[in-house]
């Protein structure tokens, strides 16, 4: 996994709560063999006016001019701002892959759905929780300032607005450590190989009915 560096980027504001993973990446892309290239299909049904299919050429599809992502001023956004319960619904990790592939590195919301939140950390995407009143202020600021950028400093756990205001955020220490170093979970877990083997042996004795061959 790619290590997370400090991000300073344009903020894309999507003023909605309950943005579900079906909206982030529609189901037809789940059949795709690929695990990359989903950026063109991020928010596919909001972004385009036609129905998209995997493997299609996207450059000539009709664009929905009313969807915020299609506004020129948000081109190249690396930070996404939304409301509560971001990433609810299906566990599809494609939602995170699509966001990352598009170039999003940080999502700021007042809350995240649990499975999506976990999936973010596996792919170097930082889901950052801020209080609703701060989110309100950010939405307001962006409205009035084209090219509005936020700096996200993971090391000091701060976001810094263009006028220098800082908002601190919490992140669980181990998750931060993995993001900063780009660590792969399986390798870290296998450092506990001995613990796992010992647990297995005693677990099989305590719950033998789980490990029986099927008649």
């Amino acid at each position: 996994m790619e290590a997370f560096k400090t991000v300073k980027g344009v903020v894309l504001p999507i003023d909605r709560s309950n943005i579900d993973t079906d909206a982030i990446i529609p189901k037809q892309y789940l059949k795709s063999v690929a695990r990359s290239g989903f950026g063109a299909n991020l928010f596919d049904e909001w972004r385009y006016l036609d129905h998209g299919e995997p493997g299609q050429e996207h450059s000539n599809r009709p664009i929905n001019p009313n969807f915020v992502l299609n506004e020129k001023r948000y081109t190249g956004a690396e930070v996404l701002l939304a409301r509560s319960n971001f990433g609810c619904g299906s566990s599809r990790e494609h939602a995170v892959w699509a966001l990352r592939d598009y170039g999003v590195k940080v999502i700021i919301a007042s809350s995240f759905a649990d499975i999506f939140f976990n999936n973010c950390f596996k792919n170097g995407l930082l889901p950052l929780v801020l209080p609703e009143d701060v989110i309100d202020v950010l939405f307001d600021s962006i409205k009035d300032e084209p090219g509005y950028m936020l700096e996200v400093d993971l090391e000091s756990q701060n976001i810094i607005t263009p006028d220098g205001t800082q908002h601190s955020f919490d992140i669980e220490r181990f998750r931060k450590y993995c993001l900063v170093n780009g660590f792969d979970d399986i390798d870290l877990t296998l450092q506990h190989k001995k613990d796992i083997s010992e647990f297995e042996a005693s677990h099989k004795q305590r719950m033998p009915w789980l490990f029986e061959d099927i008649s």
Binding site: S91, R92, N118, N119, K122, N123, D185, I186, T189, E200
Partner: peptide, 18 residues
Amino acid sequence: FGIGSTEVKHVLATQTLW
């Protein structure tokens, strides 16, 4: 509980999950 693709592989490889 439901998990993502990376966690699916983690369980396949280790039979555990954080």
